Amino acid sequence: MNAPRRRADAAENRARILQAAREVVANAEEVRLNEIAKRAGVGQGTLYRHFPTREALLAEVYRKDVDDLVAAAPGLLAEHAPLPALARWLDRVAEYAKVKRGVFAAVEAGLWQDLSAHSLGPIGETLSTFLDAGKAEGTIRPDIDACDVILLLGYLTRLEPAEWDARAHRLLHVILDGLRHHA
């Protein structure tokens, strides 16, 4: 069954709320709903009509990031060779991991497990798409699988906010170098 169609202004409000929440989660030490509403240019009532709880809002931010990551893969592979496409996608993964860490820090353990389960399948499948394309092209090692890369990406959750900008993308390039097939 399809979700009911939202009025255009309601859909715009929802999108602004999600974007503001993503910015707050990625950059603030504490997630405050009044700050999100203010950044989105909506009142508290509008925020709560769309997201009745803080957890509902954070879960949607997280799910949207996962969906956006997965949706970006085909376009990147269409525009770039597999390894450069994967590099561009991993840059997006770094931003996703920053949001993921903020969401997971702000939600209860039960919701954390549910969100984690939502991401592992789609992200693993998307990684496999990049890896398979690179293997077929001969630029990615044949002995690598998506689980290997996901385990390596786990380091992103251990970076402190103060070291994020200096390390996240550089370490992603170390992973990319390790994925390269050397003749």
Rank of each mutant, 00 (worst) to 15 (best):
R141Q: 08
A105V: 00
A109P: 10
D132I: 07
F104D: 02
R54P: 10
T46R: 04
A8T: 07
V107P: 05
G102C: 03
G121R: 13
T157W: 13
N13L: 06
D114S: 14
L90M: 10
V42P: 06
V25D: 03
G154M: 10
T126F: 08
L33M: 14
P52D: 13
V24L: 08
D9C: 02
A72D: 12
G178E: 08
A117R: 15
L57G: 04
A72R: 01
L76W: 08
K135I: 12
H181V: 01
R141H: 09
R63F: 03
Y62F: 15
D148T: 11
G41T: 07
D143I: 02
E125L: 05
E125G: 12
D91E: 11
A162R: 14
P52M: 08
P142M: 06
E30R: 14
K64H: 11
K135R: 15
L33A: 10
I36G: 00
E137A: 14
T157V: 12
P82A: 07
W164I: 10
R180F: 05
R5L: 11
K100A: 11
D65H: 12
A105M: 01
A20Q: 06
K98H: 05
H50R: 00
H118S: 01
G178C: 03
L179F: 02
P122G: 04
T126S: 08
H181K: 12
A168T: 04
I36Y: 02
E55S: 15
L127E: 07
E137G: 10
A40R: 09
A109Q: 10
R16A: 14
I150Q: 13
R16T: 07
E12R: 12
L120N: 06
R5F: 07
A146S: 15
D114E: 15
L153F: 09
E160K: 12
A166H: 12
E23G: 02
D65T: 09
L131T: 01
E55T: 15
V70E: 08
L90H: 04
D9M: 07
T126K: 00
G41R: 02
R7Q: 11
D132L: 13
F130N: 05
V66P: 01
L83M: 10
H50V: 10
E55Y: 07
A81P: 03
